[in-house]
Design a protein around this nucleic acid. Sequence first.
DNA 1: GTTATGACCCAAA
DNA 2: GTTTGGGCCATAA
Length: 107
Amino acid sequence: MTGNDPALKITSLIKKIPRGRVATYGQIATLANRPRNSRQVGAVLKSLPAGSGVPWHRVVNSHGRISDRSHSASEGLQRCLLESEGVELNETGRIDLNVFQWRPRRR
DNA sequence: GTTATGACCCAAA
DNA sequence: GTTTGGGCCATAA
C-alpha cells in the first residue's frame, strides 16, 4: 500500500476531532505536514462521500467562520450541527476559536 | 499526459 | 469592515 494518501491523512485527522470542538483548515493542513495545503483540505472534504464518518462540519476557516462553499444549504446545516455539539456562535456568526478550537497534544 | 477549478491562507491597500 | 493579488496542490474532466 502506498501509505501516503493526502486525503486519507486529512480525513484521518478530522475524524480525531472530539465532539464540541472545531479545527481550522490551516490547522488540519499543518497537522498533515502541509502548511500550505489548506486549499486541498477543502477539496478533499468536498469530494468526501456521504457517510464517510468525517465530521466536516467541525472544520472552519481561520476566521472561525463557516466555509464559503459554493452552492448548497450545508451552511445552515453545519451551524446546526455545531450548535448541537455544544459549539457556540458569536453575534457576528463566528466561532470563538479561543475556546472551541481543537487542541491536540493537550486536549 | 494536460487544463481548469477550488468547502483556503496570508499580506497589503 | 472590504478588495486585490499571489501561492499552494488535490480533484475532476
